[in-house]
Design a protein around this nucleic acid. Structure first.
Lengths: 223, 223
DNA sequence: TTGATTGACATACTGCCGGTATGTTCGCGC
DNA sequence: GCGCGAACATACCGGCAGTATGTCAATCAA
């Protein structure tokens, strides 16, 4: 048998890449199935979790077999990390868009915090990145994988605040972790709340107020 | 065969409970093996995680078989929850001890926060309660299980602060979650740091300063 | 054009592990 | 001292991650 269930994929794609050089087709096919696998993984890991999702199910959803999966990924963890990256990059791009509209530092910080809180409400981000990420990947690797993405953005914003004399000599790294931890936890609470809308508003209110308190306290203490 | 590896246990315990009524012996034996299983589970879940620990290993460490394990617990999750409770109760008792020495509300809040941060540094608490708890038990159940324990203490402290006019009309529930999330995340960072001592001090410093900022901002805004 | 090579899969199998079903023994009430 | 049930132990099953192997087709060297 061999190539049996994958024929449809070629037919579909061939129509879209007729102009390309022939040598690129193969790679294009492969990239397509890889993306399908990642999308399938993101979907299933989000709904049923890492342990609750079998590789066979992921492969079937992507219209391939486990053999294809193991051809593209080293194993279940590797596939999870690919799913993780996909979800993280999505949030990262949103945060970046906010950074580009540069305004007052404190205003920008508020916007980034609000946007990150919103992103944390995405079920995929919440389960894959926040909850299962550290458990499945191990904390060290999880941290490294976030370094240049969403966490990096938040850390940079806080670094700017400190550089502008916003906070006292508080460690940037520590503050950034505190903020991320607080927000992701709050987002989880919102998502699991019987009345997400209300809790979400309460949370945004609390965050904004706390930020204002810190700013106020910060400006009365030092110049 | 049957009762083969459990004889030693009776011999050991019999010496310590000679004074008890005979009718209590059986229950005492059982409670002992149950505790052994929980201790074994806590130890192994802490070092190798939930997925990385087999029930056979846990049972063997407790000097019994899987049959005994399934006699005392419904399954792996149930055993995990027992381990979770054991670790949580330990932290809870520490926090309670602090509450008993009643002082200024803000001082008490600072002490509780510092103690909770310290508790979060315990590897067992960190892995079982903070990281794997929500994943293994599900967030809802995880939250409920913490309600009357460590989280309850922190929430009560914050409720006191608000009742005393400390924070503006900020939701207690939301604030408590923010604080717990921030601290547990920070603790994880400390534990995985190459220089835990330094980062720990930085974190305590940051937390104390932020608390002071909030207090300062709080007192300048409202009476 | 063709034979060899290799990438991109599919199929078949293995071992581990959680869970279950069943067996065995001993303590305890009668 | 006897039956009964609690407190275990043993044997087995099914699912699943991982591996080993097979297959086909696209590419390339000659």
């Amino acid at each position: 048998m061999g190539m049996v269930g994958a024929g449809w994929r070629r037919l579909v794609i061939m129509a879209t890449v007729r102009a390309r050089r022939a040598s690129a087709r193969r790679a294009h096919y492969a990239a397509s199935t890889r993306d399908d696998l990642v999308r399938s993984a993101v979907s299933l890991f989000t709904t049923h979790g890492y342990a609750g999702t079998s590789l066979d199910t992921i492969a079937t959803r992507a219209r391939v077999t486990k053999g294809a999966l193991y051809h593209h990924f080293k194993g279940k963890q590797d596939l999870f990390e690919a799913a993780f990256s996909a979800v993280e990059r999505n949030v990262y791009s949103k945060l970046q868009r906010i950074l580009e509209k540069s305004e007052n530092l404190w205003v920008k910080a508020g916007l980034v915090v609000r946007e990150y809180l919103q992103s944390c409400l995405d079920p995929a981000y919440q389960r894959i990145v926040i909850h299962e990420g550290p458990v499945v990947m191990g904390w060290q690797r999880w941290r490294d994988a976030q370094e240049g993405l969403s966490y990096g953005v938040i850390r940079d914003v806080i670094a700017d605040l400190r550089a502008a004399g916003g906070l006292g000599g508080i460690s940037v790294e520590v503050t950034a972790r505190l903020v991320c931890g607080a927000l992701s936890t709050a987002a989880t609470m919102i998502a699991n709340s019987p009345d997400p809308k209300r809790v979400s508003e309460e949370t945004e209110d609390a965050v904004v107020r706390l930020l204002a308190l810190v700013r106020a306290g910060s400006e009365t203490q030092d110049g």
